[in-house]
């Protein structure tokens, strides 16, 4: 009787065992937001402890699961105040980037140093900021562990093709996903030479009215240079109906 019960539990557990892809799908869907607005505080800390702060207002809207638009208006430091940036993600081809230059009062379509390019001189890349792109990776569940008092899934992500590896600069990402909230708790990034060079850590999350969650304070550390970057959302408002017209080149031209 006992062995039959154990067998049933094992069979049931195996049947409900999430795959790596399903776990990451839950991560993508954990924050069921359509649009966000608020301010971003970006803190850059050098290896010698020097601190630089960047502040910006932002609006973003999801048009598909992993396609969004985002506009950022820099507020600090004062030498870059007024500069604004529009990112339009495209399913096919390159994302579009536009920059408003306050000195010249013009909007320019700009080049991009790839999705792996640094976001505002931080340790985050534009790709990191955009969140997990399911179609770009193959995921494999490597185990379930306890890390820093949290039960986590350990998921390994490998680039789906060479283009993803080249664009992102990552040959592998190891995710630790918190079981209770399906947010990335830690992540370790490997460069194209296979060296672990960046570490992500979640500091704080908010639970939304509908029960979903969103990361609001997180940081990335470059393990090679010891440079750190922290992003904190301030005054975050979710699903307020950010109008499409705010996320256009015209809105940039109005800066």
């Amino acid at each position: 009787m006992y062995s039959a019960f154990v067998s049933m539990v094992v069979i049931f557990t195996a049947a409900t065992q999430l795959t790596g892809y399903e776990i990451m799908e839950r991560v993508v869907n954990a924050g069921r937001w359509h649009d966000l607005k608020g301010a971003i505080e970006l803190t850059l800390v050098s290896s010698s402890g020097e601190v630089k702060k960047r502040e910006m207002d932002f609006y973003t809207k999801r048009y598909e699961a992993d396609l969004s638009r985002m506009i950022m208006i820099l507020k600090a430091p004062p030498e870059v105040k007024g500069m604004a940036f529009l990112l339009i993600e495209r399913k096919e081809g390159d994302d579009e980037r536009y920059l408003y230059l306050p000195a010249m009062r013009v909007v320019r379509r700009i080049e991009a140093s790839g999705k792996g390019g640094s976001f505002m001189s931080s340790d985050f890349s534009y790709y990191d900021i955009g969140g997990v792109k399911l179609r770009d990776w193959t995921f494999q569940l490597k185990g379930e562990e306890e890390r820093e008092g949290q039960d986590v899934y350990v998921v390994e992500a490998l680039p789906a093709n060479r283009k993803v590896e080249k664009e992102t600069g990552y040959s592998k990402i190891e995710y630790e996903i918190r079981k209770d909230i399906f947010l990335i708790w830690h992540a370790y990034y490997y460069n194209r030479a296979g060296v672990k060079f960046k570490e992500y850590k979640l500091n704080e999350f908010h639970r939304l009215d509908d029960g979903s969650v969103i990361a609001v304070d997180f940081e990335m550390k470059n393990l090679v240079t010891a440079h750190r970057s922290r992003i904190r959302f301030v005054g975050l408002e979710v699903n307020t109906g950010v109008p499409d017209k705010l996320l256009t080149v015209r809105a940039l031209r109005r800066r």
Binding site: D94, E96, R97, R108, R109, I110, E111, A112, S113, G114
Partner: peptide, 9 residues
């Protein structure tokens, strides 16, 4: 005109 492709324009 402006044509942008990745790092090039």
């Amino acid at each position: 005109g402006v044509w942008v492709s990745g790092r090039w324009s």
